[in-house]
């Protein structure tokens, strides 16, 4: 066996209730660098993990407002100043005609930001993760529930953390190598 420090510990649970309570215990023990993986969304798990509310809405709002303003500004500038052109006998600055583009660019900039910011916040794309080496972890997409605590966490202590995970009812605790 290698003597290098493991990447972290992986604990397996049999059902959503077990992983839910285990998360509460790990949260209350004060761990920061850890995560839970489940085959399907478990209601309230974010609270059990003590996750703070996402910053995503702020990113979407900021870029959405920017995209919205740019759309309105560009149309006014293009139709009114850069290339004044009368269409259908309407005034050069015709707000109703700008609204569809205004609306679409607001939605587009917001959606693209939500998508990209989601990837960035979640650290995607991630072609490899230490948990992929675990045979047990393959069932995360099927019927098993997992918690992994990283060794980079200041509270991490191989034996103490292992004992904690065992105490929460983990049916399997594995070391993950980097």
């Amino acid at each position: 066996m290698s003597t290098t420090k493991p990447w972290g510990l992986l604990a397996q649970y049999e059902n959503p209730a077990a992983v839910f309570h285990a998360c509460e215990t790990v949260r209350d023990a004060g761990y920061q660098s850890w995560d839970a993986c489940t085959p399907f969304p478990v209601h309230g798990l974010d609270k059990a993990m003590g996750l703070k509310s996402s910053k995503l809405p702020w990113a979407v709002l900021a870029v959405g407002v920017t995209g919205s303003s740019l759309a309105l500004f560009f149309q006014s500038w293009a139709m009114g100043n850069a290339y004044p052109f009368i269409v259908g006998g309407k005034p050069l600055f015709s707000l109703p005609a700008f609204v569809p583009i205004w609306y679409e660019l607001t939605v587009l900039s917001s959606c693209v930001t939500a998508f990209l910011a989601n990837w960035i916040i979640n650290g995607l794309p991630q072609p490899y993760h230490p948990a992929f080496a675990s045979k047990a972890f393959e069932r995360v997409t099927d019927d098993k529930f997992f918690i992994m605590i990283e060794s980079s966490d200041p509270k991490f202590d191989l034996e103490a953390t292992r004992a904690l995970l065992k105490k929460t009812g983990a049916t399997l605790v594995e070391e993950l190598q980097p």
């Binding site: 259908g88 006998g89 309407k90 109703p96 005609a97 609204v99 569809p100």
Partner: peptide, 12 residues
Amino acid sequence: AFSQYMLIWYAN
């Protein structure tokens, strides 16, 4: 409401 308005406004 806007879709109704815009089509009427544009076609005139």
